[in-house]
Amino acid sequence: MKDVIDVMALQNNRREKRLPDYRSAPGHSLATNFIFECGIKLGLQPATIATAAIFYHKFFREADKNDYDCYVVCTACLCVAGKSRDEPVRPRDAVNVAHNSINRGAGPLELGEEYWSWRGAVAQAELLVLRLLGFSLDTPSPHKYLLHYLRSIQEWFPQDQWRSAPVARTAMAFLQDFHHSPAILDYRAPHLAVACLTLALHVLGVSVPLASTLEDDSAWYSS
């Protein structure tokens, strides 16, 4: 099977051993973990995976969590996010990656009944997600804001100081992590970006050069 993502190879990865067991997790407790794990395995861009998480939160803001299978909907959210951001996921890959993340060590699905029922369920769930979102797939993009803020703030730092603290990586990680919470839907993209940046600076104990010279006591990036 050329070009199909090799799920076995992914599993032999050492990191895999530390990943959660979705089967024993109650309800939706690991839903967003599942989205991020599968998204990374499918090779999707971080912003696309974040979009899938947003679709998931929006979906279950409308629908009852007991009515739909969490992981089928999560897989469908990844498919819709991929299409909406021009980074399509092949259904076969999506199903294989999802199935193997749930059933660790199970090996790729045979093209049999179980595969087709999974695939049919994901296809249906994809339409359902679209219906509940009313095809409003345009999600705000805090990633872009954060990138711009990082770019401008970087110019304030001497090069070696910027390199010594992982500000960009930490801020991006905070932003990505916040997508685990449905609260991501409640804030505007620029606010999210600025919050992640400020938090990263605080956590790393980095102060922005020249900020203390501002007339106003509060720096421009703090509220």
Partner: peptide, 8 residues
């Protein structure tokens, strides 16, 4: 798996 059959 406890997740897939009921979900479908």
């Amino acid at each position: 798996s406890s997740t897939s059959p009921p979900s479908l």
